[in-house]
Amino acid sequence: MRKLLFFIPLAVFLILGVVLYLQLGKDTQYMPSVLVGKKVPAFTLVSLQDDQVYTHQDLPTAPYLINFWGTWCPACHVEHPFLMALADSGVTIIGIDYKDKKDLAEQWLEQKGNPYQIVLMDEMGRFGMDMGVTGAPETFVVDGSGVVVYRHQGVVNAENWPDIKGYMK
């Protein structure tokens, strides 16, 4: 019985070893979104192209993406061609022009093409704050019932798209 006590440190070491090993190589910057499992927060935003007021009730009823972007964001330049390809393949993307200037955004869409069904302007970043956005680009997957099911921080590309697509149900 007493001899068993000597194995306690070894057991603790092994358990800790396994726990720490499982954490190795994980993305330390990864932050789960509080919004997952909740409805898209209420908003009233003006659209970029036709100056119409949109609210959360105007959002699509089939699964879609919400993509935060801005002309000031270098990674968004990288992401843009892939979003174009997604739009071509029939994915609905709602663009949020995050903390940007209207004329610059219009120019961007004119030159590079528009992958978005609607582009809403969030000049003050208030909607971004409600969505828990920390920068751009950030992409949310919303399901058919208007519930956020996934959040992706950073560029959406061919590599991570299969994972994200898996949430679009």
């Binding site: 330390t28 910057q29 932050m31 903390k99 970043g125 704050m129 828990g132 956005v133 920390t134 920068g135």
Partner: peptide
């Protein structure tokens, strides 16, 4: 600061920290 994870809002110069301080 949710962006630069080892800083508080007071120390961070990132855009989101500025916004959150304002908030």
């Amino acid at each position: 600061c949710p962006k630069c994870q080892n800083q508080n809002l007071a120390d961070s110069g990132s855009g989101i920290a500025v916004d959150l301080r304002e908030q």
